[in-house]
Design a protein around this nucleic acid. Structure first.
Lengths: 188, 188, 188, 188
DNA sequence: GATGAATGAGGGTTCATTCAT
DNA sequence: TATGAATGAACCCTCATTCAT
């Protein structure tokens, strides 16, 4: 029950930060959403900034875990790419607030060093994965960061489109976009 | 002189909103950056929210103008696509704060209906442009919104990468990415 | 054991009130110093104000007891004065926190009537003692309250000086000051 | 008018700090007493602690000025002592809140180094003055700090007695106490 | 028109007090 | 009985907004 409160506060904060941003969200708002007293938040978090950083790191960790879950280590690169693509999609759809929060918060002035480095570590995973494809000669002659822009950028924008109800994320559409992304980065 | 102040305030606000977000930016901050008194801002804008909305619409209009400037109405679709791609890139690089501000502000809780509809109008331009390619059978069998996700999402993420100094935006790189995007959306 | 806790809380409160004042001391601070739970304090004291008042009265009572202990009822006035002087000094040195707390708290806005009247009763003892000397023609033609100002005021300030380590309270010094005080109040 | 506000705030704070102590006085209380908005206080003082320190130093400076005003540099030591005694009395009576505030605040945990050193400088003046008398062989063989305890301690306690209306400070009484203090410290 | 001093509502945070365990 | 998690009123302080100059 107590641990539940910690969780409830984080969940409430995530929702509100995703909707209104860090500075647009007040601690009483979080308290109300989490159904706790405002003072209670300070039993679990030193202050608002520590709260947002802890939330960020937790979200990134969960995101990273999602990405790595069931990673087809033994399969070929094409398969690995597909896995990463679909897991990114999955996370953005199953945790849309977390996904939106993470993307809106990277680079924020209130992130501490630990948070920034955690996120970099996560991005490194994707970069290393793409490097592997490059070394195998499967990908175009572009920097990995360009591939990230294409794939991550696409998924990021797509998730907005799904959230806003502009597109319906059915299997066929996702398969089509996955192929598009692959075609965008693969050689020849 | 007076018009100048109006402009200075908008420019100052844009810079600060891009850096710290709307709620993280105070009116005195804007006043100092614009080198005017805090009270002066209220001679030009009814309040902070009206200011951010006016700024947003102005930025979107400028963005749209950039996109349409020199549009090769008479050229083929491939050329038109290239034009849009490079103009998006150009705007993101020449007005990085505006570009960042627009993207961070779309969907913000403080945007009014007019602002939202202005932005939709802008996106419609891109969508219509892509629809044209679809009708011509040049593009894959995907919704236009998917193409937007790919192209706009890529450019959005790319601009961050440029701003952070992770990639250097030389001609070769941009040409490569433009080709990637085209390959991602073009049929066959 | 229970009575012990009551005592521990009072002792902890006294120390902290002496150091930081009533309003600068929080109930959790007292609880920690007393090694009890914060809630426990409310089993022994109705609230913080009742606690400080009970502490004040207890301290005054102890102070009064010290003063009266071994009072040389049969000796002459000079001897009685010496007794009072040294007992005041003794209390201020053996219970520096209590002494400091009492003096900082007399006149405080949070003292209740009972506490104020208890302290007046204590001062009356000193005053009556001095009146006796006046009636015997041993003291100058000044109000007893003036004698109190001289003797109590001196000792109060002296105790600060001792506490701060500015003076070392050896026998010779105390004897000298006692003589000074006597000379200040005695006739001819 | 503006400078007036600075002054009003200090005066209001002094009154309330004298009555209720630093931690027992809220910023809104000060604002109300000074007849300004709560936010206005922060245009004149960085925060509550800076305010109390500035007030303390100002009070000490005024106190020191009072003491030195009309100091009979050319007269003998007896006359100088009388001057200091009466000026101490004068300050404590003309500025009872300042006097009470200073005495209650010396040693407070929220005083900064500058404030502490300012007060020490002030006390040094009194000590040096007494040292002069000692060197001239006019005073008893006691440390100067003991003299301070006697004289300052007496006056401190006396001012409380006056404030509480217990004694009426007429010329005869003051003359008597001045003589008592002199007898308490003078040799032979 | 331009300013910035002034304001008070509301921000983040603390803490006296309660109460379920 | 003893606790400390929980609370919300009230703290210090900030800032959007006003208005006298």
């Amino acid at each position: 029950m107590a641990e539940n409160k910690h969780e409830n506060i984080l969940r409430a904060a995530q929702k509100l930060f995703a909707e209104r941003g860090y500075d647009g969200t007040t601690v009483p708002m979080i308290a109300e959403e989490a159904k706790v007293g405002a003072g209670t938040i300070y039993r679990y978090f030193e202050n608002k900034q520590k709260l947002v950083n802890e939330l960020f790191r937790g979200s990134v960790a969960q995101f990273a875990a999602t990405l790595q879950a069931g990673f087809p280590e033994q399969k070929d690169f094409r398969e690995k790419f597909r896995h990463v693509f679909y897991q990114l999609i999955r996370y953005s759809r199953e945790q849309p607030e977390a996904f939106r929060f993470i993307n809106a918060t990277v680079n924020a002035y209130f992130l501490d060093e630990q948070s920034k480095s955690d996120f970099e570590g996560f991005m490194d995973f994707i970069e290393r994965h793409l490097d592997e494809g490059k070394e195998a000669g499967l990908l175009r002659d572009l920097p990995s960061q360009a591939f990230i822009a294409i794939v991550y950028g696409t998924i990021f924008h797509l998730s907005r489109t799904f959230e806003d109800g502009i597109l319906e994320p059915d299997d066929e559409l996702l398969a089509g976009i996955e192929k598009s992304c692959w075609d965008a980065i693969s050689a020849g």
